[in-house]
Design a protein around this nucleic acid. Structure first.
Length: 489
RNA sequence: CGGGGUGUGGCGCAGCCCGGUUAGCGCGCUACGUUCGGGACGUAGAGGCCGAGAGUUCAAAUCUCUCCACCCCGACCA
């Protein structure tokens, strides 16, 4: 195994895979398109998950769990929905295997299911089949349920965390008495996602509406947060859908309103997935590996002891005791690496894993009552007195958190271009790449033509759009919207 | 699902063209010793039905056929 990873500048896709593997986030599973999330990667996911879960609880949502298996017929109830997911559904047709005479395992043809079941690609259908039972009156609304689950979408091409056959996510499914309330909910959730991305993952995002062709199958409107990765491509990092009455109609979910009139329920659904782990890798990583935002880093501070003699080791152990216990009390996630690899090896290894702060403590530091502190985000090396560390470390962690966000924001701003001609549009995509902000006439034809010509898609119609006076970058007609175009993951 | 590529100790590869003793190298791994402030070194070890199946041959990692798997690049998707 080579020492470093493929540089970003040489091959970004390979860099990404190298980092994910080398940092110990994940490994390939035996079935095509599957992956194992390793402890370090899972810890990252769990931190992220907990941050979001708290925000969702604080906004009145409760967690529940719905089955993995869904009757095949459910998917067909909503026309757009079935079209969107049918071609990537795993289907269970049999319930057992049997051994043949020559000792092989085959599907037992006797066990064929009379009604085949699908493995959920998303849970709208099964959840709305249940909501039908649970909702009768406006007093039952709103119903605000979230679930943490795995889903399966049989993808042709997969990439660790970004697109895998099975992935973990959170899917919220809410039911409301009015259209307006559902709309508010979809927007409120999007804002929670924005906070998650910006405040925890340190990834600046653009919030906006998806175009008709990019929206969720079965939704009236889809809102999304879009982030820029290190190769200037866009990644959809979270979506929130206003489903209108589509699923209520499909599953006949009605309620009696305050005027005793029967009415269809209004719905939303929304989700973020383990894809966010990939987003963190690509938004912040460099040629040395990951750079993790402190708020979600499994380990925030790693201590590398440096010693020659056994008595030095003993001194360092004693020296570190008050520091680590003090920091742990403050909630700092700290790890001492006493493994017998060389210090240089450890430096590189923990940089690969993206730990925000490294403390080097050797005999010299013990003598001078100090420690060498190195920031992962800037590489800056500081010598700090031991008694200042208790305050300095949390301060540095905060600084790194905002620093990573600022860097990502500057990077995005630097690679976001306002253009008026298709010539410029092309040049940017064929050259440096990035986000393109421009006018769009609002037609499917224009969107498709641009995609054919450049592979760029409309990432979203940003909430802060201002189409006034703009003309469409492609057709030259008056712009209906100002949109963000980019090549996307 | 189309195009390309690769399957050889845990990982990365060489060997294959032109069949022939015991299948080799680097990294990693184990033990011991010396090391330790930016990927340490020495010594001694362990680890392989060469992706699967069939065929050709006195003889197959090597030649032929079939299958399988995975990776990359395109069309579709969180």
């Amino acid at each position: 195994m080579s020492k470093g990873v493929t540089p970003q500048s040489k091959d970004y896709a390979t860099w990404y895979t190298d980092v994910v593997i080398r940092a110990g986030l994940a490994d390939y599973g035996p079935v095509k398109g599957t992956m194992v999330i390793k402890p370090y990667g899972f810890a990252l996911w769990e931190n992220l998950k907990q941050s979001l879960d708290t925000m969702l609880r604080d906004s009145g949502h409760v967690n529940a769990y719905f089955p993995l298996f869904i009757p095949k017929s459910f998917l067909a109830r909503e026309a757009e929905h079935v079209e969107g997911f049918a071609k990537e559904c795993a289907v269970v047709t049999h319930t057992r295997l049997m051994a043949t005479d020559d000792g092989k395992l085959v599907v037992d043809p006797e066990s064929r299911l009379e009604e085949e079941v699908i493995v959920r690609p998303t849970s709208e259908t099964i959840i709305w089949s249940m909501y039908k039972k649970w909702i009768q009156s406006y007093r039952d609304l709103p119903l605000l349920i979230n679930q943490w689950a795995n889903v399966v979408r049989w993808e042709m091409r997969t990439r660790l965390f970004l697109r895998t056959t099975e992935f973990l996510w959170q899917e919220g499914h809410t039911a409301h008495a009015t259209a307006n309330e559902a709309e508010q909910e979809a927007r409120r959730i999007l804002d929670i996602y924005r906070q998650l991305a910006e405040d925890y993952l340190a990834i600046p995002v653009i919030t906006g509406t998806k175009s008709e062709s990019e929206k969720f199958a079965g939704a009236d409107h889809t809102y999304a947060i879009e982030a820029m990765m290190g190769d200037r491509r866009a990644l959809q990092a979270g979506t929130s859908h206003n489903l209108g009455q589509n699923f209520a109609r499909a599953f006949q979910v009605t309620f009696q309103n305050e005027n005793n009139k029967e009415e269809l329920v209004y719905a939303t659904s929304w989700g973020v997935s383990t894809r966010l782990v990939g987003a963190v890798v690509m938004a912040h990583g460099d040629d040395k590996g990951l750079r993790l935002p402190p708020r979600i880093a499994p380990i925030q501070v790693v201590i590398i002891p440096i010693y020659r003699q056994p008595e030095d080791k003993e001194r360092i152990i004693d020296y570190l005791k008050p520091l680590t216990s003090g920091l742990k009390k403050q909630g700092v996630r700290i790890h001492e690496d006493w493994s017998d690899a060389s210090p240089g090896y450890k430096f590189n290894e923990w940089e690969m894993k993206g730990v925000p702060l490294r403390l080097e403590v050797g005999p010299r530091d013990v003598n001078r009552e100090q420690a060498v502190v190195v920031r992962r985000d800037t590489g800056e090396k500081l010598v700090l007195s031991m008694n200042s560390l208790m305050e300095e470390i949390p301060r540095l962690l905060d600084d790194i958190q905002t620093g990573l966000f600022q860097q990502a924001l500057e990077f995005r701003n630097q690679h976001t271009h306002q253009v008026t001609t298709f010539e410029e549009f092309r040049n940017i995509l064929e050259g440096p790449g990035g986000f393109i902000r421009c006018g769009w006439d609002g037609t499917l034809e224009t969107e498709a033509a641009i995609k054919d010509a450049t592979k760029a898609t409309i990432r979203c119609i940003p909430f802060d759009e201002n189409p006034e006076g703009l003309s469409c970058v492609f057709s030259g007609k008056p712009a209906r919207h100002e949109v963000i175009f980019a090549k996307a993951y």
